[in-house]
């Protein structure tokens, strides 16, 4: 009887030892991880516009039915062209907002006359599905003022972004959450 309780005690002792060692090891590992991350900001996903090739994968690979990546417009870079190649089909019938002339399949770009001869273009985000067709059009001829960005009011910030996996030019990067956009005109003083 005594021997069996001894055995039990010994077992408990060994068990406790293992558990405490495990807890200390885990604590050490957590300490290492915490030390490694330091005080760095957590990250969110964003598109580096300099790497984006406007392939259109953002529209279909996002886990959301309506992608979190949408087109944005950097107004200071825009030429305010009458014939905007991001707004109009490559060879438009006429320079008006008729559906037959528009490039955007969902009609998400709004064209507004500012003053002779300038027109302002802006994105209606409710309609934009992130196909990047206009980004291609703007880049092909224009200043590249239309570009893709992950909109953080929609983004779920998945552990591994499904679009990042599908991105052919590795344009999806993790950026600090406190500064979650990679805007083109930032810091240009334009």
């Amino acid at each position: 009887m005594a021997s069996s309780s001894d055995k039990l005690d010994r077992r408990q002792f060994v068990g406790n030892g293992v558990r405490i060692a495990g807890a200390i090891g885990l604590g050490g590992f957590v300490g290492f991880l915490a030390g490694r991350r330091g005080s760095a900001d957590d990250t969110v996903w964003q598109i580096d516009p300099n790497k984006c090739i406007a392939c259109g994968n953002c529209a279909t690979y996002c886990v959301l039915d309506e992608s979190a990546a949408k087109c944005v417009h950097s107004y200071p870079m825009c030429g305010y062209c009458e014939l905007c190649t991001g707004y109009f089909e490559p060879d438009p019938n006429d320079l008006n907002s008729g559906a037959e002339n528009q490039l955007c399949p969902t009609g998400a770009i709004v064209r507004k006359f500012v003053e002779e001869p300038y027109h302002e273009y802006s994105i209606d985000e409710a309609l934009c599905i992130g196909c990047a067709k206009c980004v291609k059009g703007c880049n092909a001829f224009g200043n590249g003022s239309l570009y893709m960005q992950v909109r953080h009011d929609r983004c779920l910030n998945c552990n591994e972004c499904a679009i990042a996996v599908a991105c052919p030019s590795q344009a999806f990067v993790r950026v600090p959450a406190s500064n979650p956009y990679l805007l083109k005109h930032k810091g240009t003083g334009a």
């Binding site: 529209a59 279909t60 196909c131 067709k133």
Partner: peptide, 12 residues
């Protein structure tokens, strides 16, 4: 590829 329909292609 994106699997978007043809209307989404920008083709020059």
């Amino acid at each position: 590829g994106s699997g978007l329909p043809q209307r989404f292609d920008y083709d020059l």
